[in-house]
Design a protein around this nucleic acid. Structure first.
Length: 875
RNA sequence: GGGCGAUUAGCUCAGCUGGUUUAGAGCGUCUGCCUUACAAGCAGAGGGUCUGCGGUUCGAAUCCGUAAUCGCCCACCA
């Protein structure tokens, strides 16, 4: 062991142990008698690559899983990927386009072949990357949202909801993505503030020569679809318009003026143009007043035949062109700068076009009840709790979910159209045929007569089943696995998918399983760069996680991320955090080198200092074990890690090891050595969930281990919190030692030179053995008054001093003491002011008053000690 | 436009039901050290009128009000 390098080398260690864990199936879980602890992974996009958000997210999950495993639970972390309908289809379409193939030239079957090829080629890369991080997922269970079990689950659920009347098909105004050529749900639309223009256009009034009204719009191109103009009936300016008609500029169409209080009189001119086919509100008005609806756009956002002019031009080109043409005809009143919110597709960033179309919807209102309640009463606990509000608000204002997508890559909607009109919903073709015959009464129907709806379902319509479908709980609701693992314990996810995924999983849990899907939801923050920008590909400010692992080691990166990541707070990532993690690995590594380098003597007696050190550290360790357990229970992971960090670095390395370290060239006694290895073992266990690789490496070195044994499955001792007097005494000791060291530093006394420590006052000598060793003292002498030249310090109310030969800077000593005196006097004054206040003494609890009195007497004692020291120096 | 959250040391953050020595940590900074585990280290030190203003209280970083700044979520003013 002595030939260990002075630095920890992660690359030599990580691959080895990951293979070892896999080989011995240590991540694998099956139902047994132990308590289950289960996390289902938020499935990353199958063709995605690991980014910093995944790193954060999955590090947290792994820490929770590994800790649960070491607490003796049957821990299972189920991995998998998401087929990500829109983005994967977009990637495949782009790849085909690069090869000169258009999607429209392919059959559905042919296209899906390409998509599967693509998935097999790039799919699962991200899972391989997670292994580098040390993720202890049960890879034997890896699932895919579109594999056989998950697909059949989706179909079954669709049928279930349809049969309950909770899924319907209808023409509605939906969010249309002209780039992906599909409808989207409301959640997939991101509104961005944009600097645009407000165009004021003239609409001449029919039959009133030369009289016109002015209408303000941000989208002049949609006048091609105008079928009315609307004003507020209370608007006195426009009372005369009642019953009139106006001419849509340029288009020349005569449209009615309608009156509705929906119109804000203050906005623009108080006149609203109504385009029922291309605006949600206008659609509502059109519906109310029976207006004609003219769909002027093709699916790709170009003007359709129905537009009548500019046919085939893109909507944004038309905007420019039509304004030129309107200006040429003097139909433009003015143009103003205007800031408004424009909806963009979450996946393609294309500007959303509100569009009337036939789609499938889920009636959400009938499903949310138990899901709202569960979070409200903390049956499902959100961490941090602020997300409860956001969740409640969304759930109580929920709208129907548009679940159909005009895509091929996904779960095809299980609806079949019949030749004579109408459709049936079924779990498969055979069932569809039976239902179709029944419904139509036409027994001559064959499968060839039925046409399946070509559309696919929203990706989230499969992800919302994830905690259930992973255990086949939809198809086989009574199987052992679902009964054992469900509900899962914790969910760890980013807050941006709270509606897409978290809320819907809760809804699905209650609807399909009558039980919550998980007990706690831990919302991570967003990983930002040092100056607070969200990490993104386009900004190029996101480091490649694998490069980071190469540079700092997986444990270093894990630690770096966790140090800065309180739940729900964004994390300002900086490489220096990983550096700190890497440095900590070295610290652990070198502490191990030290201990394993000791020669052990079976005959040497245990020094008193070591005995005391062992007693003290045992107490500190137990306290920290309990503290970490408490913090982890509250998901305060970075604080837990910090407690472990300080325990190892400060208490164990800087204090304990220095106390028990044998003098150079001498052996350590057996008892001290064994205790030290025992502590090291516990420390490694405590560290393991955070830093799995280095801890496994050192643990295996610590003593002989049988093949297949691992720290992963070692049990973490439980600590307990208590105040042993030795902890307090040791704290005082640390102060005294620090005082000695400060004097050494100030007086330039080398550490190897022994000094005498003189004590003036009531000094507790029970830990003197340690004091003498750590201070390199010749002795600790009790004295009265002052013995000549010395440099001193005060701890509590006791004066300590180190006699010096020759030049003592009396002035400096005095300055120091006087500054201290001034502080203590000021402090005493505030305490006495409180005590002099009668209302405080009578009003405050007895305990608080007693504490103040204690402060008062302590301060007085201390002041007396300082004054004595000053007097001694002066005399 | 509504709602929510934040503002504590140079940076990132703790500080839970007001009282635990006139506020703590990690990192960074400064000083001294290549001390026989570790210079990616050791030892020591400095650093804050808790965003401003007002209020409640014997007592406020903590509770209330208000202003400013930042952030997030939601919403159909074209």
């Amino acid at each position: 062991m002595n030939e260990l390098a002075t630095k920890y080398n992660p690359s030599e260690v990580e691959g080895k142990w990951y293979s070892y864990w896999m080989e011995h199936r240590l991540f694998h879980s099956e139902p047994d008698d132990r308590d289950p602890y289960c996390i289902v992974i938020p499935p990353p996009n199958v063709t995605g690559v690991l980014h910093m958000g995944h790193m954060l997210n999955n590090t947290i999950q792994d820490i929770l899983i590994r800790r649960a495993r070491m607490e003796g639970k049957n821990a299972l972390w189920v991995p998998g990927t998401d087929h990500a309908a829109i983005s994967t289809e977009a990637k495949v379409v782009a790849k085909l386009a690069a090869d000169g193939i258009k999607k429209t030239d392919l059959s559905r079957e042919k296209f899906l072949e390409h998509a599967w090829d693509w998935t097999h080629k790039y799919g699962g890369i991200i899972l391989e990357q997670l292994k580098r991080l040390g993720a202890s997922c049960d890879w034997e269970r890896t699932a895919f949202t579109i594999d056989d079990i998950r697909s059949r689950s989706v179909i079954k659920v669709f049928n279930h909801l349809y049969d309950k009347g909770l899924i319907y098909r209808g023409v509605r105004m939906v969010n249309w993505d002209p780039k992906a050529l599909t409808a989207l749900s409301d959640e997939e639309v991101i509104y961005k503030e944009e600097h645009s223009k407000l165009y004021y256009l003239r609409y001449f009034v029919e039959g009133e020569d030369g009289r016109y009204i002015v209408v303000a719009t941000t989208r002049p191109e949609t006048i091609l679809g105008d079928t009315a103009v609307c004003v507020n009936p209370n608007d006195e300016r426009y009372g005369w318009l009642k019953g009139k008609r106006v001419i849509v500029p340029k288009v020349g169409r005569s449209v009615p003026v309608i009156m509705d209080e929906y119109v804000e009189m203050e906005f623009g001119t108080g006149c609203l143009k109504v385009t029922p086919a291309h605006d949600v509100n206008d659609y509502m008005l059109g519906d109310k007043y029976g207006l004609e609806s003219i769909d002027i756009f093709n699916d790709n956002g170009t003007v359709s035949e129905a537009g009548g002019m500019y046919v085939g031009m893109d909507r944004f080109d038309v905007r420019k062109k039509i304004m030129e043409d309107l200006a040429a005809e003097d139909l433009v009143e003015k143009i103003e700068d205007y800031v408004n919110k424009v909806g963009h597709s979450e996946r393609t960033d294309a500007v959303i076009e509100p569009k009337l179309s036939m789609q499938w919807f889920v009636k959400m209102n009938d499903l949310v009840g138990p899901a709202i309640e569960a979070v409200e009463i903390d049956a499902i606990k959100f961490v941090p709790a602020k997300f409860k509000n956001i969740y409640r608000h969304w759930m109580t204002n929920i709208k129907d979910w548009c679940i159909s997508r005009q895509l091929w890559w996904g779960h095809q909607i299980p609806a079949w159209f019949m030749p004579g009109g109408g459709f049936v919903v079924a779990e498969n073709e055979e069932e569809a045929l039976i239902k179709a015959i029944e419904k139509s009464g036409d027994s001559s129907l064959t499968l060839a007569d039925l046409r399946r709806d070509p559309d696919c379902l929203d990706t989230w319509f499969s992800s919302w089943l994830w905690p259930i479908s992973l255990f086949n709980g939809i198809l086989d609701p009574d199987n052992e696995e679902i009964k054992y693992y469900y509900p899962t314990a914790d969910l760890v996810t980013a807050p941006d998918i709270i509606f897409f995924w978290v809320a819907r999983m809760i809804i699905a849990g209650y609807e399909f399983r009558h039980e919550k899907p998980f007990g706690n939801v831990y919302f991570t923050g967003i990983v930002r760069d040092k100056i607070g920008r969200k990490m993104s590909k386009s900004l190029g400010n996101s480091p490649d996680p694998l490069d980071l692992i190469d540079k700092f080691g997986a444990d270093g990166v894990r630690m770096g991320l966790m140090l800065a990541a309180p739940a729900g707070n964004d994390i300002m990532y900086d490489d220096s955090l990983c550096e700190q993690g890497r440095n900590f690995c070295n610290k652990i590594w070198n502490a191990f080198r030290l201990v394993k380098g000791w020669e052990v003597s079976e005959t040497a007696a245990q020094p008193e200092a070591s005995r005391l050190g062992i007693e003290w550290f045992g107490n500190v360790l137990s306290n920290t074990l309990a503290e970490v357990a408490d913090l982890m229970g509250k998901f305060r992971i970075s604080e837990a890690l910090m407690a472990v960090y300080k325990l190892f670095w400060d208490e164990f390395s800087s204090w304990y090891l220095e106390v028990v370290k044998p003098a150079y060239g001498t052996p350590v006694d057996r008892a001290t050595y064994d205790s030290t290895l025992g502590y090291f073992d516990t420390l490694l266990r405590l560290l393991h969930p955070f830093m799995p690789f280095i801890t496994e490496e050192l643990w295996q070195h610590l003593s002989e281990r049988a093949e297949g044994e691992s720290i992963m499955t070692a049990i973490l001792p439980e600590g307990c919190r208590y105040d042993d007097p030795i902890i307090g005494r040791f704290d005082v000791l640390k102060e005294i030692i620090a005082g000695v060291r400060t004097v050494r530093l100030k007086k330039q006394i080398p550490n190897k030179n022994q000094v005498l420590l003189e004590v003036n006052g009531p000094h507790d000598d029970t830990l003197d053995a340690i004091l003498i060793k750590m201070g390199n003292l010749s002795a600790v002498d009790q004295i009265e008054g002052k013995n000549g030249a010395s440099a001193g310090f005060i701890v509590g109310a006791v004066e300590y001093s180190i006699p010096l030969e020759g030049n003592v800077n009396v002035e400096e000593e005095l300055r120091k003491l006087e500054a201290d005196l001034k502080y203590q006097q000021g402090f005493l004054a505030t305490v006495e002011k409180k005590l002099a206040n009668e209302r405080f003494v009578s009003g405050a609890p007895e305990k608080v008053v007693a504490l103040e009195r204690k402060k008062q007497s302590d301060a007085k004692e201390k002041i007396a000690a300082i004054e004595a020291a000053i007097k001694a120096i002066r005399s």
